[in-house]
């Protein structure tokens, strides 16, 4: 019935929505930033544990749509063990992919985050996918203020 949506709602997204990874609080986290998408009401709190410049642990709490939940869940998985700089570079790539500006974007280069490429076709949903990354960006820059997609 929802054949047209197969690119957007891949099984991996449903899976992460049902069972979000790293869905927990890190007590005494080095970084804790809230992300909010006022348009949808998506709200998340991102926790980072840093080991020098390396993200030793990442987790989140909050509620949102399947796209935003899957996006933050996947993000916490992939940034673990990366340096802040590497994570920022990944954010840049992710942003390029989701906004769809580069037609020749190499999906293989972005690994499992490629399952979120489908939002390119749904401009109203791009912010759902990028909220997690904007929040991570704020956390890495050590901005204490809650961030908003608006």
């Amino acid at each position: 019935m929802f054949d047209d949506l197969r690119d957007l709602y891949q099984e991996v997204i449903f899976d992460h929505n049902r069972n979000p990874r790293n869905f927990r609080i890190i007590e005494n986290a080095d970084r804790k930033v809230e992300g909010f998408n006022p348009l949808c009401g998506d709200r998340l709190t991102l926790y980072l544990q840093m080991d020098g410049d390396v993200i030793a642990d990442a987790s989140f709490q909050g509620s949102g749509c399947a796209i935003s939940t899957a996006s933050v869940s996947l993000m916490t998985e992939v940034v673990k063990g990366k340096t802040g700089q590497e994570a920022e570079a990944l954010f840049k790539k992710f942003h390029e992919m989701t906004t769809g500006k580069d037609e020749n974007f190499n999906l293989e280069a972005i690994g499992k985050l490629a399952v979120l490429a489908g939002v390119r076709e749904y401009p109203a949903r791009v912010k759902c996918a990028t909220l997690a990354w904007h929040t991570l960006d704020a956390a890495l820059k050590n901005e204490q203020q809650a961030i908003s997609t608006e």
Partner: peptide, 22 residues
Amino acid sequence: KIHPHDIGTMLDSLGIAIRAGH
């Protein structure tokens, strides 16, 4: 367990226009 925005996008694919949000 299903966010209104997911409901909105899925119904749209069936030609149904509803509003999802606050």
